[in-house]
Nucleic acid binder design. Structure first.
Lengths: 238, 238
DNA sequence: ACCCGCTTAAAACAATCGTTCGATGCGTTT
DNA sequence: AAACGCATCGAACGATTGTTTTAAGCGGGT
C-alpha cells in the first residue's frame, strides 16, 4: 500500500511519444506526488521506460528537468489566469466580483482539460510540494513565474474588497494559497477524516467548495483599526 | 542566503542538557525547516554537537527520533486543545462560539510559551512539512495522535454552524488546516510578496488574522442544496 | 583495585544518490 | 558506400545516505 500510483505508472505506459516529452509527463506526476528529493532519477527513468542517462542527456541535470516542467506549464497557466481576470465584470446575472476573481485564480490551477497526464492539478500539486522543500531552484522558479500574476490578483482583490488594509489583504491571499495548496498536497487526509465523503481529486468539488468559503472570508470586516484609514489613503498604484 | 537558521543552530549551542533532549530539540527544528528526508543524521548530530551514532543509540533509528518527537509533543498539545474546546461557551462579552472553537484549535498549535526552542510553532511546522513527504511513519503518527481531536473539533464546528452538510463541514475544516499549515510551511512567500508587511513568524498576528477569516468563511451559506436536508436529519451521534 | 553498566568516539558498512563515460545502433547527408 | 550527427545503452564514477561495529571513556558498587 506504499505508493500505488507509482506502480501504476510502471504498468500503464504513456502513449507513444519521444523520450523527452515522456520524461516531462512522468516527472511532473512523480515530483508532485513524492517531492523533488523524494524521486530518484532511477525511479523516474524506470517509470518512463527510458534509459537512466536520458535525464542528463536531454535536460542536463535533474534540476534542469524541473525547470523544463516549469517552462512548459507556467506560461499557459498564467495567461489563462490573467485572461479570466480581465473577463471579470459586474453583471446582473453573474456571481459577485469577488467570487469571479477567486475563481479566475483557482480554476486554471485545477483545470484538467488542457493537457494530458493529470493536467494542471498535477502541476499545482508539484508547486505546492516544492514550496515545502528547501530547493533553491524551485523557489527561484516560483518567484520568477508567479510573482507578477500574484500581485495582479492581490491588487484586483483589493479593489473588490476595499475595506481591508494591505496587510490583511496579503494575509487573506496567503490563506487562499494555503487552502488551495493543501488540498493538492494532502488529499488523503481529508478523504480519510471525512470517511470518503470529500474527494480532493474531484477538482470540480474543490472549486465549488473553495470559492464561496474563501470569498466569504475575504468579506470579514477589518480588525486592524489603525490601518483602515491607511487603506483608504494609500492603496492606489498597483 | 541558503539556510541561515541552520547556521545559527551550529553557532548558538543549546543550553546545557543531555544528549537525548538536545537531539530532540535540534531535530524538531531542523526537520520542521528542511523536512525529514532533507536533513541527514550527520547534519543533525553536528548541529546538536553530539556524535553521529547518538541518534541510533538513543532512538534506534532516524525514524525512531521522529516518533519520539511526536510522543513528546502530541499529548500536551491535544490536551490543551481539548481543554480550550471544553471552555468554549456562549457569553455576552466573549467572541461568538465559532470564533472560540477555531481559536481553541489554532492557538495551541502556535503557542510559543510552553516549551523552549521555538515551541509549538516548530512542531506544527514539522507536521505540515511531514504531511507533504511520503513518509509512511509520519502519516501513521499523525493519524494516531490527531484523528480523535480533529473529529471532536469537526463535531463542535458542526454544532456551531448547523446549516452545513457533512461534506461542506469537512471541506471547510480542510481549508482551515491548509491555511494554518501553509502559514507554517512557507512563511517566506507571504513575507516576500507583501514586502515585509506580513510576518508569519509573529504567531500573534497569524492568530489575529486567521480566526476571523476562517470563522467568516465557515458562515458562508450552504450551496449543496440536496444535503441541506441531510444535515438536518443526519448529524446526531459524534 | 576490579568489574560492571551506560554513554560516547571514530571508523567502516552496504546501499543509493546524481552524474559521466565510452560504445553502440540508427537515419540522413555527402 | 563512407562519414556524420543524434539518441540510447550498459557500466561505472565519486559522493552521500542511514546504520553498524568496535573500542574507549566514565562513574559507582562490591
Amino acid at each position: 500500500m506504499g505508493h500505488p500510483i507509482e506502480d501504476r505508472t510502471l504498468l500503464v505506459a504513456e502513449p507513444a511519444s519521444d523520450t523527452k516529452t515522456r520524461l516531462l509527463g512522468v516527472a511532473e506526476r512523480l515530483f508532485a506526488e513524492q517531492g523533488f528529493d523524494g524521486v530518484s532519477v532511477r525511479q523516474l527513468t524506470a517509470a518512463a521506460g527510458v534509459n537512466l542517462a536520458a535525464v542528463n542527456y536531454h535536460f542536463g541535470s535533474k534540476e534542469g528537468l524541473l525547470a523544463a516542467i516549469f517552462e512548459q506549464r507556467c506560461r499557459p497557466m498564467n495567461e489563462e489566469r490573467l485572461r479570466r481576470l480581465s473577463d471579470c465584470a459586474e453583471h446582473a446575472h453573474r456571481p459577485p466580483m469577488l467570487e469571479q476573481i477567486i475563481a479566475a485564480f483557482i480554476a486554471p490551477a485545477l483545470a484538467s482539460s488542457a493537457d494530458r497526464g493529470g493536467g494542471r492539478a498535477a502541476f499545482t500539486r508539484l508547486r505546492a510540494t516544492l514550496s515545502v522543500e528547501h530547493n533553491e531552484l524551485a523557489r527561484r522558479l516560483i518567484a520568477r513565474h508567479f510573482d507578477a500574476t500574484s500581485q495582479r490578483f492581490v491588487a484586483a482583490l483589493g479593489r473588490a474588497v476595499p475595506h481591508l488594509s494591505r496587510a490583511e489583504l496579503y494575509w487573506r491571499f496567503h490563506f487562499l494559497l494555503g487552502a488551495l495548496y493543501y488540498s493538492m498536497i494532502n488529499p488523503s487526509r481529508i478523504a480519510y477524516l471525512s470517511d470518503g465523503i470529500c474527494d480532493p481529486a474531484d477538482v470540480e468539488a474543490v472549486l465549488t467548495q473553495m470559492v464561496p468559503f474563501i470569498a466569504t472570508g475575504f468579506r470579514a470586516p477589518s480588525l486592524d483599526r489603525s490601518s483602515r484609514g491607511r487603506a483608504r489613503r494609500g492603496r492606489r498604484g498597483e
